[in-house]
Computed example of a mutant assay.
Amino acid sequence: MTDRAGDTPLYSIAVAAQLSGLTPAALRLYEEKGLLTPARSEGGTRRYSEDDLARLREVARLQDDGINLAGIGHVMRLQDENAELRRRLAES
């Protein structure tokens, strides 16, 4: 089996929807709201990575907790900033 980076775009929107338990419409909405940005093929087709799938699952979990999409956007940005700060600390 080949080891791939978590950010390698592998999955079409239909497969990503199935793997995440969401609908393709939800994935498009999350992208529209800036909650994730899937890669695009040369033809413009969305391609989702394992990292994208993990992010989709986190969005769905936060929605299940009753947080609206605007709030989820804030939470996700703070989580991203926290992860970046942790990476910087680890490097120093």
Rank of each mutant, 00 (worst) to 15 (best):
S12Q: 04
R88N: 06
R47K: 13
R57G: 14
P24E: 09
G43F: 06
L19F: 07
R47D: 03
G34R: 01
L29V: 12
R46T: 10
Q63L: 15
P24T: 10
P24K: 08
R61K: 11
D7Q: 06
L53F: 04
L62M: 13
G6A: 12
I72F: 02
A26Q: 15
V75D: 00
A70K: 11
G71N: 00
R4V: 07
L10D: 00
R46F: 10
R86H: 11
D7E: 12
G6C: 01
G71E: 03
G6M: 04
L69W: 05
Q63G: 08
Q63R: 15
A90R: 15
T2Y: 00
D64E: 14
A60K: 15
P24H: 08
L36W: 07
E31F: 10
D7F: 07
L89M: 10
R86L: 12
G73E: 04
M76I: 15
P9F: 01
V75A: 08
Q79C: 03
G6D: 15
L29C: 06
E58L: 14
L22C: 14
A39I: 08
I13F: 06
R40V: 11
L36F: 12
T8I: 05
D3W: 05
E91C: 11
D64Y: 01
A70F: 11
A25S: 15
L29F: 07
L19C: 03
G44H: 09
G44W: 07
L56W: 06
A83Q: 14
G43V: 00
L85M: 12
P24W: 06
L78T: 09
L29T: 13
N82V: 07
D7M: 04
S41A: 13
E58A: 14
T2C: 00
G71I: 03
S12D: 11
G44V: 05
L62E: 02
R47E: 09
T45I: 05
P9T: 03
M1V: 12
A54D: 11
E91L: 14
N82T: 10
I13D: 01
T23Y: 00
Q63D: 01
P9D: 05
E84R: 15
L69F: 07
E42H: 09
D3S: 06
E31C: 12
A39P: 08
R46S: 12
D64S: 13
G73R: 09
L10Q: 10
G21S: 02
Y48R: 06
R57F: 04
G6Y: 03
G73M: 01
R87S: 13
Y48P: 05
A83E: 14
L89I: 12
G43T: 15
D7S: 12
A25D: 15
G34F: 02
Q63W: 03
L22V: 13
D65M: 13
T45Y: 15
R87G: 02
L69P: 00
S20F: 01
I13K: 06
G44P: 07
V15W: 01
T8W: 04
G73I: 02
N82W: 03
E81W: 09
I13T: 13
L78N: 10
A17I: 06
E50M: 01
D65H: 13
A60V: 08
N68T: 10
L10H: 00
A60S: 14
P24V: 10
T45A: 13
A83D: 14
R55N: 00
L10N: 00
G6H: 03
A70V: 13
D3C: 04
